[in-house]
Every structure is written in structure tokens, then in C-alpha cells.
Computed example of a mutant assay.
Amino acid sequence: MSRYTLYSTWGCHLCEDAEALVKAAGVAGELQIVDIVDDEQALARFRVHIPVLACTDAQGAEQLLYWPFDAISLQQWLDQHTKDIK
């Protein structure tokens, strides 16, 4: 099971930027990419917010990081949520 989910859609340059940042942060092996067009619930939830990075913490709560984010804020978020997951 993937630890992180990136909600995006095809042809979204912001989503491509977010995906590149997430992969550069070293979590590509733990990443699932969901095209919101293919997921009715994700589309309803994130239609105007993509890209959105999500993870589920140790208590089962979903944590979301909304765009815009840069490498520094992404790494801080990952560090916090990696700690929460363990």
C-alpha cells in the first residue's frame, strides 16, 4: 500500500510540478498518483484544488498538503508526517 497519494489530472502543469517535487524528495516508491477524472469521489473533493498530496497518519487521520508548495515546505510536511506514521 502506498503511503502517499498525489491527487492530480492529466495535462495539469501544476500537477506535473508537484509530482516532480515529490519524486525529488525521495518518496517515489511510496507514491500513488490518482487522476481525479477517474475517481468520482476525488473529483468532487479536489476538483478546484489539485494538486493535493495526502497521507494517513498513525491515528487514521488523512493529512493533506495543498498546492502551492515548494521543496522546503514539502520536506517539512513529509518529515512531520513520516514521524506521525511511525
Rank of each mutant, 00 (worst) to 15 (best):
M1N: 01
M1W: 00
S2E: 02
S2F: 02
R3M: 05
R3F: 01
T5F: 00
L6Y: 03
Y7P: 10
Y7L: 15
T9D: 02
T9N: 02
T9I: 06
W10A: 12
W10L: 11
G11T: 10
C12E: 13
H13L: 00
L14D: 14
L14Q: 15
C15P: 04
E16I: 09
D17C: 04
D17H: 14
D17I: 02
E19Q: 05
A20L: 04
V22A: 10
A25D: 08
A25L: 06
G26A: 01
G26I: 00
G26E: 02
V27N: 10
G29E: 14
L31C: 05
L31D: 03
I33W: 00
I33P: 00
V34N: 10
V34R: 13
D35L: 00
D35S: 03
D35I: 04
D35T: 05
I36S: 03
D38F: 03
D38E: 12
D38Y: 05
D39H: 15
E40T: 12
E40P: 12
E40I: 08
Q41A: 15
Q41T: 10
Q41C: 00
Q41R: 09
A42W: 02
A44G: 13
A44N: 13
A44I: 05
R45A: 03
R45V: 04
F46T: 12
F46I: 10
V48A: 11
H49P: 00
I50G: 05
V52E: 08
L53G: 00
T56N: 05
T56W: 04
D57I: 05
D57T: 09
D57H: 11
D57Y: 08
D57P: 06
A58P: 06
Q59A: 11
Q59K: 11
Q59N: 12
G60H: 10
G60V: 07
A61C: 08
A61N: 11
E62V: 15
Q63S: 07
Q63H: 12
Q63D: 04
Q63K: 12
L64Q: 13
L65P: 10
P68W: 09
P68V: 03
F69H: 08
I72F: 04
S73M: 13
L74H: 09
Q75D: 09
Q76A: 12
W77C: 05
W77E: 09
L78H: 03
D79M: 04
D79N: 14
Q80M: 13
H81C: 01
H81I: 02
T82H: 13
T82C: 09
K83W: 13
D84E: 15
D84L: 12
I85H: 04
